[in-house]
Design a protein around this nucleic acid. Sequence first.
DNA 1: GTCTATAGCTAGATAGAC
DNA 2: GTCTATCTAGCTATAGAC
Lengths: 176, 176
Amino acid sequence: MPAVAKTSRQDILRTAEDLLGQRGEEGVTFLQIAKRCGVKGPSLYKHFPDREALIHELEVRAFAQLGNQLSAAPQSVIGLASAFLSFASLNPGPYSLLFKSGDPSLPTEAIRPVLVLLENILGNREEALTRARVIASFLHGYALMERSGAFRLGGDPAACVAVGLKLIVPEASGTN
Amino acid sequence: MPAVAKTSRQDILRTAEDLLGQRGEEGVTFLQIAKRCGVKGPSLYKHFPDREALIHELEVRAFAQLGNQLSAAPQSVIGLASAFLSFASLNPGPYSLLFKSGDPSLPTEAIRPVLVLLENILGNREEALTRARVIASFLHGYALMERSGAFRLGGDPAACVAVGLKLIVPEASGTN
DNA sequence: GTCTATAGCTAGATAGAC
DNA sequence: GTCTATCTAGCTATAGAC
């Protein structure tokens, strides 16, 4: 059988994620992916119908990957926050897809551990949602500022993470 | 005198800012700007040497605009935070340029009011810097999530802003 | 499944007429 | 200051040979 497979769906997706982290969404082109996978551009159409399908697949994977990390992490405020920031730092490509609006299918699921934990700590569902939003905003903003080098006033920016979490969920102190 | 001016530096910059807010940085092309300004692409090179110069000008303007808003706002935690979020909401184009790393020239200046206020409230320079970072991360993350529609669990997302600020700077309660 | 060839589009930028 | 014409380059996508 001629035409031996030089690449694969997995290979393409991993390569696309690297490209996404290095050059942003506009940098994820079939031509560049193909080059890195050792094939020519048009070959990728045997694996994905078009670029949009590839991007959508990356989004689905990103939510699944984050969900896995959060599920496997210590179920404490610090534990979940650390897992979230690690994911953002180690997987900048997938992470950048998490907050891009789009279809509201599985997004909710990935964050569930945070909501469950806060409900346990606070004993109030509505308050838990509000705090979860404060934490999500804080961590998301921190992850982006950290990555873009926006903390320009010296000292140790990372120190503000633990401080911020303690301020936002004082009820968890000592329990973590 | 032939060749009457159909557009201007200001017109181009405003148009570029609109485009930036609507289509992102990659959407800011000389061709699109020209179309909206009623001229042809090459005409823009009479106003800016190249695309990079235009983008840089947009960055400088963005920091200046934010600085003006923060200086003119009530110098309280709520006042400055509201001004920041208003700027982000009303000027999505310029706002998107604020956290893109790049040259560390004037960025520091725009944020000064926040630092000054927190030093007054906390009486501790180092603690003020840490809290400022927590607030900046929180507001930046909130602004982006709000804009991208990332708050998908119902209720009123905006409610978490006041709650978050009170948690992060409890010392300011009653003073605002 | 890979390839070459190609079509169609958009972008940045320059040259030179008016 | 604006225009047309042009160049280079990169992208998406399709057709058809192997």
